[in-house]
Each structure stands twice: as C-alpha cells, then as structure tokens.
Simulated assay, not measured.
Amino acid sequence: MLTIKGVGRDTVAGFFAEVGDLQEYSHPRQIIKLAGLSLKENTSGKHKGQTRITKRGRKKLRALLFRVCMIMVAKNSAFKALHAYYTQRPDNPLKKMQSLIALCNKLISIFYAIGKKQFEFSEEKMLKDIPHMRAKIEVETAA
C-alpha cells in the first residue's frame, strides 16, 4: 500500500486502526458502509430527493480517506485522470466533491484487494480495468 503514490505510513496505519483485520470482510462494500460512504436517496412518496452519502459510519475513517483522495488527485496520475473523467464526462458529469467520494470508494477497493491478495499496485492496470478508461488509453496509444 505504501508503494501507491500519495499514500503514506500514517494513512495506512489510520486505515487499519479504523477497519481492523481485512480477513473479517468478504467484500469492499462492507468497508465502504463502515466508513459511511454508501449512497442513499432521500425520497418520500412521489418526491424524488437528492442522493447523498449516509454518513452513518466512522467519521475518522471517512475524513482520512477524503484527505488522502485530495492528495492523490494532486500527485497520482491515475487518480488525477479518473477525477478528470468523472468531472468532465459528457453524460452525467459529477461535481468535484462527488468525484472525490467516488475516488474514496475506489481507494477502499484498492486497499482491500492489496490487503487480501498481497500484490503490487499498478496505475496502468487500474486504469485498464475500468471500461471507459480502457477505451481512452487505447485511443492514446494508437495515436
């Protein structure tokens, strides 16, 4: 996890202090829910409200992930590209804060996969695993 550009010792220590042993979780969505980053829609009858994060979880974990994602958008090229895509995509662009929350969820998934399967992080592989980014990378390499 320390090989990821923008992630430091304090981040990894804080993550494990809040989450605990990753063997207790069967899917990264469980950690996302623990952090309070899962989405809910405020609806009532015919009224369709806004979709927001639940904030029903560990405040310190949520704050830690948000701060790390802000740093990673600035320093990590893969996260910077993903943030640019989320905020500038033609259909359903996200606001900057929404994009950072989506990146927090992505970071949880990456930490979970690295912790469970013990492999090295690769920015290129991460971007190729995302369908819309794979097409963008193929166009850039062909040019």
Rank of each mutant, 00 (worst) to 15 (best):
E124N: 12
K136C: 07
S77G: 09
T54F: 10
P93H: 11
K116L: 05
K75A: 06
P93T: 11
E24T: 12
N42M: 09
T54K: 11
Q88D: 04
S38F: 03
K96E: 08
I31H: 01
A81Q: 13
A81Y: 05
D91E: 13
F119S: 07
G6W: 00
F119W: 10
M70E: 09
G36W: 01
Q118A: 10
G49F: 09
A143Y: 11
Y25R: 06
L61W: 01
S26I: 10
F79I: 07
E24D: 11
Q98R: 08
E120R: 09
Q30S: 08
I32Q: 02
M126A: 01
K59L: 13
K60W: 08
L39E: 14
L2E: 12
R9A: 11
V139Y: 12
R52G: 09
Q98T: 09
F111E: 00
A142T: 10
Q118H: 15
V12G: 00
G36V: 05
V7C: 03
T3I: 10
T54M: 11
P90V: 15
K55T: 08
G49C: 06
L64I: 04
Y85C: 04
K106T: 12
V19C: 07
M97F: 10
C104M: 14
L34N: 03
K80Q: 13
T43F: 03
R56M: 12
T51M: 14
D91K: 11
F15C: 00
K80H: 15
Y85S: 02
E138N: 11
M126F: 09
I130S: 02
R56C: 05
F79C: 01
F79W: 04
Q50W: 06
